[in-house]
């Protein structure tokens, strides 16, 4: 890939040809405020926060391709003033209950306000929104609070360009513009597939998971549902799985997940889990130790070696599990009658 040299705030940096000034800056740890930009999506230049000065002209850095010798200032007076107005407008329009908002620590709006610096008195002079809009709680896994929405359109573009479904679009015009489904129906009544791709990309707390706990650590693994084999990170807190996050590096899913993969993990901790071996005695299952159960199984199986025995391996188990089951069947039970549900 061709490398381009450019200057940002006097620092010479290198970027790949075809990248935007914003991406080049971020890649070099130079922060430029941005709200509607997402690395997975094409830029739209809607939030007007990422403006930079190029030879006295303000350009949106998300839309500006890097050029050899480009001299970019991230904070000229004009750029600063425009940015200040934009963030003040956003903050004046936003609910203030940050402490009870699930997004607080990841909130891009707070991040930007923190970067630009906000004068509370100036915000006070602006007019606050009047009637709050109703929150859409219809989906079991996430909620949509239009009052927190900054209309960055990331969810709209995610559903269209990543999920390929196009559930969401802008509805209404002017300051009444909201994000909505077709006919502005609740999510549950739309064609939404609940994959949550929009939820994970929401820069504020507008599209938010209903149950969210920050895990204490994450473990890289592979989803257990279908044959796509999505790469995931299981979030762990104590001895519980509390979250699932998509692995962006895994070729099979490249950061995407479906509704089951993302939200369908609670069976792991379900109270119905079998937690001890059981032996049927007089028609009733009775709890047993592993030694009791395994001894009994070994003793009984010994009577059925050869054609009287069958094993069914499992397409849900690991390669190692399956290898051992077939090996056990062939080598110990002396039969090749081992199959699994591949055909179902």
């Amino acid at each position: 890939m061709e490398k381009i040299k450019l200057t940002i705030d006097g620092l010479e940096i290198e970027a790949e040809a075809g990248t935007s000034v914003l991406d080049a800056a971020l890649a070099n740890d130079i922060y430029i405020p941005h709200l509607c930009h997402h690395p997975d999506l094409k830029p739209v230049g809607a939030c007007r926060l990422c403006g930079v000065d190029v030879n006295g002209r303000m350009e949106m850095s998300c839309l500006l391709p890097v050029r050899e010798g480009l001299d970019v200032k991230t904070n000229s007076p004009e750029v600063g003033a425009t940015r200040q107005v934009a963030i003040e407008l956003l903050l004046a329009d936003h609910p203030q209950g940050c402490l009870s908002c699930g997004a607080s620590l990841q909130c891009e709006l707070l991040h930007i306000a923190d970067h630009i610096g906000v004068d509370g008195e100036r915000i006070e002079r602006l007019r606050r929104p009047s009637e709050p809009l109703p929150i859409d709680n219809s989906n079991p896994f996430f909620s949509f609070d239009p009052n927190k929405c900054v209309l960055c359109g990331i969810c709209v573009r995610t559903c269209e360009d990543i999920v390929g479904l196009g559930v969401l679009d802008f509805v209404n015009r002017g300051s009444r513009t909201v994000i909505g489904t077709f006919g502005n129906e609740p999510f549950i009544d739309s064609i939404c597939e609940s994959c949550g791709e929009c939820v994970v990309r929401c820069p504020v707390g507008s599209l938010a998971p209903k149950r969210w706990q920050r895990p204490s650590h994450e473990v890289q693994s592979t989803c257990v549902y279908c044959g796509v084999g999505c790469g995931i990170y299981l979030g762990v807190k104590g001895d519980q799985v509390v979250s699932v996050r998509a692995d962006r590096e895994r070729p099979s899913n490249q950061g995407s997940l479906c509704v089951k993969g993302r939200y369908g993990y609670n069976f792991i901790n379900h109270k119905d889990r079998l937690t001890t071996p059981l032996i049927k005695k007089e028609g009733q299952f009775v709890e047993a130790t592993w030694d009791e159960a395994l001894d009994l199984v070994a003793e009984k199986f010994a009577d059925y070696k050869g054609s009287e025995f069958a094993a069914l391996a499992s397409a849900k188990c690991t390669n190692e599990d399956n290898y051992l089951i077939q090996k056990f069947t062939r080598a110990v039970m002396q039969t090749n009658t081992v199959d699994h549900c591949a055909r179902l």
Binding site: L35, G45, A86, V150, L151, F170, G174, S175, R176, T177
Partner: peptide
């Protein structure tokens, strides 16, 4: 009323 709602300065 006629702002499309896309960009922050115009909408808000």
């Amino acid at each position: 009323k006629e702002s499309c709602g896309k960009c922050v300065p115009c909408r808000l």
